[in-house]
Simulated assay, not measured.
Amino acid sequence: MDKVKIISRLKSQEMTEFINYCRNILISIKEILPKETTIASWDDESNKLYSFQNSLSDFNEHNLDKILIFNKKEDVFKNFDSNDKELRIDSRSWIGFSTLIYFKSNPKNEESEISISIVQGAFEKNQTALINIEFSDTFLNMATKEVFINLLKVIEQTNDLLYAVVISNEFRRKVKISGQNLWIGYITYFKDKIKKESFPNTLNVSELVHGTVICLDEKMNLTQENINKALEIRDVLGIDVLNYHT
């Protein structure tokens, strides 16, 4: 299998409940993985990974420093008290909140099977919102197409998902063109339903709750056949569909 990752684009929405938003996503992903999977984040203070409780009961306001990525000296936040610029549990952010979380089958192992980056919650318009997921080689060697589709279903449950793709850097280089910031990958999700009749019969096109999933093949291999399929879909959809506007 090619070294793939999930790239997504979300509808940006202002929020003060980013911690709960992330916790719900993490709980749903954990249900897909083995029960012994540990969820962790990097703790700058101790300079090592911090492993959350299995129930994620400590994924809360008491561990903001471990959950959120921000610069304590430079970043400012909007609070009920206009003179208060510190990060609080109900703070608002003009650029949005971000986090990077690791899923590990063995807490003592340096390798994490999955790392997930979440950016969302800006009160300023035209800010990027995303959920991107990267995988270890070990995970990719065991993962099936269904695992990736289940992960897309989790992201779709946020009700913010506009587009997602399972793709590698090399595959993206083969199929992208100038003026396009979305790509057709091994598996591609678009919000809203797309008519199956628009695509070749050789593709597996299915519907989720809010959108359409297009699969090139059962196996995610960097073959000329898969590249040709992606190029054909790209040309059918056109540049307007394959552009993300914040």
Rank of each mutant, 00 (worst) to 15 (best):
K48C: 08
L87Y: 02
K66Q: 08
K30M: 01
Q180A: 00
V205W: 09
I239G: 12
E170R: 04
S117A: 13
L140S: 11
I19H: 03
E225V: 11
F18S: 00
Y163T: 13
Q180I: 01
Y102P: 09
S168L: 14
K176C: 06
R92W: 08
I27T: 01
T16V: 09
F77C: 00
D90W: 06
R173H: 15
I233W: 04
E207H: 12
P34C: 07
M1W: 06
K48T: 10
K3D: 10
L231P: 02
N71F: 02
E110P: 13
I227Q: 06
H210F: 09
K145Y: 12
N243T: 14
I187L: 09
Y244T: 07
I27G: 02
S206I: 15
F77T: 00
A122Y: 06
K48V: 02
F103Y: 11
A122L: 08
F199P: 05
F199M: 02
N20V: 05
I25Y: 00
P34D: 07
I133T: 04
I32C: 06
T37Q: 04
E146L: 13
S8Y: 01
R92E: 14
I227G: 05
E36F: 10
I32T: 01
P200F: 10
M15W: 03
F190M: 00
Q120F: 05
N221P: 00
R92K: 14
L49Y: 07
R234P: 04
K73M: 15
L49Q: 05
H245N: 13
P200T: 15
L237T: 05
C215R: 09
T144M: 15
V119G: 01
H210K: 15
D160Q: 11
K11D: 10
K196H: 09
D192C: 08
D137G: 07
N201Q: 05
R172V: 09
M1A: 14
F199R: 11
E225G: 03
Y244H: 06
T158D: 07
I95L: 11
E110F: 12
L208R: 11
L64I: 09
E36K: 15
Q53I: 12
T158Q: 01
S55R: 14
E146P: 13
N169T: 12
L161H: 10
N204W: 13
T212S: 13
L151C: 05
N126G: 06
